[in-house]
């Protein structure tokens, strides 16, 4: 949810309209959750939760289930996965990889034993889609997160922006 809100704010800074929805079930740290973001040039009026996204950001490769992910994303859409290795290929989507856990480990971004990978994934999103500029993501991160932690997260965004790569 934090990542979704920061992305929505970044889109707002880029002069776009944005909308986020959480999907709860069991909103606990470690439980699988999802959040969706809609971004548009125009004001978004519709209010409903079901979404067939153009882009999916998978925060943990262990949650990655090719059937679910590839079926929900539009054909020709983009899937960005946090993983240290390549996973099952999709011929209908563009797949990008980033090892966000490694970035979090390098920068010491941990909370209660969990590596914080949501911010680097936004950096990867910015690079891959070009929908929101890196500067907008960085400004949005600084608005939501304060102090030393903000700069570490900004660094993580930048690293991921540079390190994300496409599946050949």
């Amino acid at each position: 949810m934090t990542a979704a809100n920061i992305l929505a704010r970044a889109a707002c800074l880029a002069g776009l309209w944005s909308q986020t929805y959480p999907f709860f079930g069991a909103e606990r740290r470690g439980a699988p959750v999802s959040a969706s973001v809609r971004i548009s040039k125009d004001r978004i009026r519709s209010k409903y939760i079901y979404i067939q996204p153009d882009v999916a950001i998978v925060l943990d490769h262990k949650l990655y289930n090719p059937v679910n992910i590839y079926q929900s994303v539009k054909e020709g859409g983009i899937v960005i996965i946090n993983t240290p290795f390549k996973v099952v290929k999709s011929y209908k989507h563009k797949v990008f990889y980033i090892n966000a856990n490694e970035i979090a480990r390098k920068l010491g971004l941990f909370f209660a034993g969990w590596s914080l990978v949501n911010m680097p994934m936004l950096g990867a999103f910015s690079k891959v889609t070009g929908l929101v500029g890196l500067e907008h993501v960085i400004q949005s991160v600084r608005e939501y997160i304060h102090g030393e932690l903000a700069e570490l997260n900004v660094e993580a965004v930048k690293l991921a922006y540079n390190e994300v790569y496409e599946d050949e």
Partner: peptide
């Protein structure tokens, strides 16, 4: 206001 649909949804 609609629970979750508005209460937990962000927009400008």
């Amino acid at each position: 206001l609609d629970g979750f649909l508005l209460s937990h949804a962000s927009e400008p």
